[in-house]
Design a protein around this nucleic acid. Structure first.
Lengths: 138, 138
DNA sequence: ATGCGAGTTGCAAATAATTTGCAGGAAAGG
DNA sequence: CCTTTCCTGCAAATTATTTGCAACTCGCAT
């Protein structure tokens, strides 16, 4: 536990409270916009600046600890790298974000490689559609 | 040809030069950001205002003549509704946008319906990855 | 322990992208 | 031709994100 900080140090980054908090927030939230990360961080460190959150998300992404995907409109959302093992199913009606194992897309991904030589990263963008609940309601 | 304007009138929209030009631009461009549409329109109607483009894209989307998808970062890109019969393969390296028939995703889409009840609209978001060219170069 | 230098932070201002309020202008129908 | 309603242009307002810069502090080397 005492050494866990080294995951940042090992990447050549300084260990600042803000940076740790941003990383922890991303991990705790699963996926979140920069704003949401900031809000989460403020729970324990009220003074943190939004720019710092943006900068740290970028930095953490550069060293591979987090990644961003495009879930909804406008904004990107961030994930801890370890969490990127599932697809994001975004419902256009209710806005919920569901998960599905990445293997579900395997046949599709393989077809794109075979036919177009296109190597898909299915986690980077959301899969958009209508969730079961909203389908039932309509 | 003389009646083709009715495609707008029939939707309950007025037939303004700006609106026609926006629709034509979207069709001509295949897929484009609001900025790109505006640029295209300005070729024949220099005075058009960006807000007008935004508003018309929205209006045209409401009546189902165009649709938007999320191809790259930030911005949405618009397509003519008729064109939405393919997937968008966005290359993260070179930024190129390739197409693939929608059927390629059929097994994947079916799996999501069967297992999660999630009805996918595969055209709304891009499929992100690395294209054949960039794979070859690296 | 102490100090130095580079990486970081906070803050405010700058950008970029999109939206909105409003007054004048122009379609469609009578 | 006239009226009503919708649409457009323009400017200002928003929202999201980035950047310049001075102050600060982390981590290494004394």
């Amino acid at each position: 536990m005492a050494d866990k900080n080294h995951e940042l140090r090992d990447k050549g980054l300084r260990l600042t409270p803000q940076r740790q908090l941003v990383l922890e927030a991303v991990r705790a939230l699963g996926h979140a916009t920069p704003e949401e990360v900031a809000e989460k961080v403020r729970a324990t460190h009220p003074g943190i600046n939004l720019s710092t959150v943006y900068r740290n998300l970028e930095t953490l992404e550069n060293v591979g600890l987090v990644q961003h995907t495009h879930l909804g409109h406008g904004g990107a959302t961030y994930h801890a790298a370890e969490e990127l093992t599932h697809l994001h199913l975004v419902c256009g009606k209710c806005g919920s974000v569901g998960d599905a194992p990445i293997e579900t897309a395997a046949p599709f991904v393989n077809a794109l490689i075979d036919e177009y030589g296109f190597k898909t990263d299915v986690t980077h963008f959301a899969i958009y559609g209508t969730c079961a609940d909203c389908t039932a309601k309509s």
